[in-house]
C-alpha cells in the first residue's frame, strides 16, 4: 500500500472521518491526524497483534478490523502487505460503507 499525501488527504476529507493514522509494518507512525497519543499507541498495538495472529493461527490474513464501543468513535484498521491505515470515524457512521470508499481511494492510488 503506497499511499501519498494526496491520497491521505482524500481519506481525511471523507464524510464522518475524524482522524487518520498511517503506520508501517513495524508500528511506526508515518502520518497521523489523531491527537490522542494513547489511542495512537493502541492502534499500533492492534496492528502489531494482527501480524502475530496471522502468524500463529490458521485464520489466514486479516484484511480489516473494526473496533467499536459505547461512547467511542469507530476504529477501522485496513491491512495491506506492508502497512496499515487506521481511520477514526463518527459513531453514527456505517463502517462497511466507509470501508468501500476508503478501498476505492486506495485502489486509485495503487
Amino acid at each position: 500500500m503506497s499511499i501519498d499525501a494526496n491520497g491521505l488527504q482524500s481519506l481525511c476529507n471523507l464524510p464522518t472521518v475524524t482522524g487518520l493514522l498511517h503506520i508501517d509494518e513495524y508500528g511506526e507512525a508515518l502520518y497521523s491526524s489523531i491527537d490522542d497519543d494513547q489511542l495512537t499507541e493502541y492502534i499500533s498495538f492492534v496492528a502489531g497483534m494482527n501480524e502475530t495472529i496471522t502468524e500463529q493461527s490458521e485464520l489466514g490474513v486479516i484484511n480489516r478490523i473494526v473496533i467499536k464501543g459505547p461512547g467511542e468513535e469507530n476504529l477501522i484498521l485496513l491491512k495491506d502487505s506492508d502497512a496499515t491505515i487506521a481511520i477514526c470515524s463518527e459513531k453514527r457512521s456505517a463502517p462497511s460503507e466507509l470501508c468501500k470508499k476508503v478501498e476505492a481511494i486506495l485502489k486509485d492510488q495503487a
Binding site: Q38, L39, E41, Y42, L59, G60, V61, I62, N63, R64, I65, V66, I67, K68, G69, P70, G71, E72, L75, P95
Partner: peptide, 14 residues
C-alpha cells in the same frame, strides 16, 4: 487506556 471498546470485527481473507 480508559477506552470502552467491547466489539471487534475481523474480516478474514476468505
Amino acid at each position: 487506556i480508559n477506552r470502552s471498546f467491547n466489539e471487534m470485527i475481523f474480516s478474514l481473507e476468505n
